[in-house]
Amino acid sequence: MKRLVVEDLKYRYPLSQELALNDISFAVEKGEFIGIVGPNGAGKSTLCQAITGLAPNFLKGAYGGRVLVDGMEVAKEEIAEIATHVGIVFQNPFTQIAGSKLTVFEEVAFGLENLGIPRYEMKKRIEEALELLDIAALRDRNPFDLSGGQMQRLAIAGIIAMKPEIIVLDEPTSQLDPQGSEEVFQAVQNLSREGMTVLMVEHKIEKIAAYADKVLLLCAGKLIDFERPPKVFSREDLEDYGIAPPVFTRVCKKLNIKTADGLYPVTLKEAYDKVVKILE
C-alpha cells in the first residue's frame, strides 16, 4: 500500500527566482525507511516541509503538483489536521520545545491538547510515546533541563503522540553531540521497527546505509535517484552530487569487491559477509 505519493511536485520560495523543488515524483510504501541525501541547498529541507504541508501552507510561495498522504492532498488541508497523518522533526531541539510547559509529560501533551484529545486517551498516548522514545524516567523534568539528545527525543515523542502514520526527520542529529546523536538514531530505528514509515534527511551517510530501505538522492531541486542504498551508493557519479559514499563502499570499491548484483556493499555487515565469502 502506498503511504505517501509525491507527483510532479514543484515549489518556489517567495521572492525567489529558482525552483527549490523541480518536478519531483516518488512513492513510499507503508513501513519503509527512506534516507534523503543531497548537497547543501539541494532542497532536502524544502521537500520535508512540502511533505508536511508547511510548503506552501505556511511558507506560501509558488506550488505545483501534489503530495498525497494516504490519499489526502496535503496542500488542501489545515496544517493541524495534516499533523495527525504526517509529523516532522527539525534540526534544533530547542526551537521544537513548545516552551509553555513545565514538565516533559506536559510537553508531550501540547499537541494533543490542541487536537482536543480526551484526557484518558491523552495520558495513554503520552505514556506510550515516552516509553517508545525511552524518556519515561524524565517525565517530571523541565524540558529545558534535558541534554540535547534527550530534548530531541522529547521533540519526537511530542510528534509521535499525535499518531501520524509517517514521520519526517530533517537532520535530527546535526546539532547534537555524538552520544546524543546515537540516542536519537536508536530511537528512530525503534520507530521504524514498530512499523512507522520514516523519511530521514541525514548527512551521516553510514547511518543511511545502515537503516534505509531506499535512498532518495536530491540535487538542485531535482530528484536524481530513488533506489536501494547499494544501488545509489554504487553510482559512479555520486561524488558529483556532493555525496561521499559510505566508508565501506569506498573500501570495497578500492578492492573491487562487489556483491552478486554487481553493486558495492554499503554497510560493514554486507562488506564483511562478502569478504568472508571471497575468502571461503
Partner: peptide, 9 residues
Amino acid sequence: KNESEIEKL
C-alpha cells in the same frame, strides 16, 4: 507578513 498568496505552478 501574513499576506502573500500561494501562486500556482
